[in-house]
């Protein structure tokens, strides 16, 4: 078997597993109960799935110029997905419908209560 054929097979495996992970992210988006759990789906399987597809693509194209572009896309994805998730989590946390009955503990609520208390003391 030639090197080209091996690379093609590895690329095919990467592409298919990446697509499977994207599908898992889609299923998780539909099935998870609230915003925060859905954000997990957007953060992890989506990022890894996309990275795998990019690796598969790079293995098929095999030229320097294209690989650097793909690397850049991958770096952007790794660097920005957590930041986007953080921003949405901050915007959504106290307001949106979060299934508190599914939470074992909520230490952020306690923290926000204390901050509000301190603010009231300053005002008084």
């Amino acid at each position: 078997m030639t090197l080209d054929a091996v690379l093609d097979i590895v690329a095919a495996v990467c592409l298919i597993s990446g697509a499977l992970l994207s599908l898992a992210a889609g299923v998780a988006l539909v099935r998870f109960p609230d915003l925060l759990t859905r954000m997990h789906a957007a953060a992890k399987p989506q990022v890894l799935g996309l990275l795998l597809v990019l690796v598969g693509c790079a293995l098929r194209l095999r030229t320097g110029v294209d690989i650097t572009t793909l690397v850049l896309v991958g770096i952007f994805q790794l660097a920005t997905a957590p930041v986007a998730a953080h921003m949405i989590g901050r915007a959504g946390y106290p307001h949106e419908e979060i299934r508190t009955d599914l939470l074992l503990t909520d230490e952020l609520a306690a923290h926000l209560d204390r901050l509000a208390g301190e603010r009231d003391e300053v005002r008084a």
Binding site: A11, A19, S22, G26, M39, L50, G56, L59, I88, G92
Partner: peptide
């Protein structure tokens, strides 16, 4: 916000589709 999260995922799926086309 749910829609924003889902749009993000949809965009990633589109990126994956374009990359697959390029690979094919």
């Amino acid at each position: 916000l749910d829609r924003a999260v889902a749009t993000d995922v949809l965009l990633a799926i589109i990126v994956a589709a374009i990359a697959t086309e390029a690979a094919y």
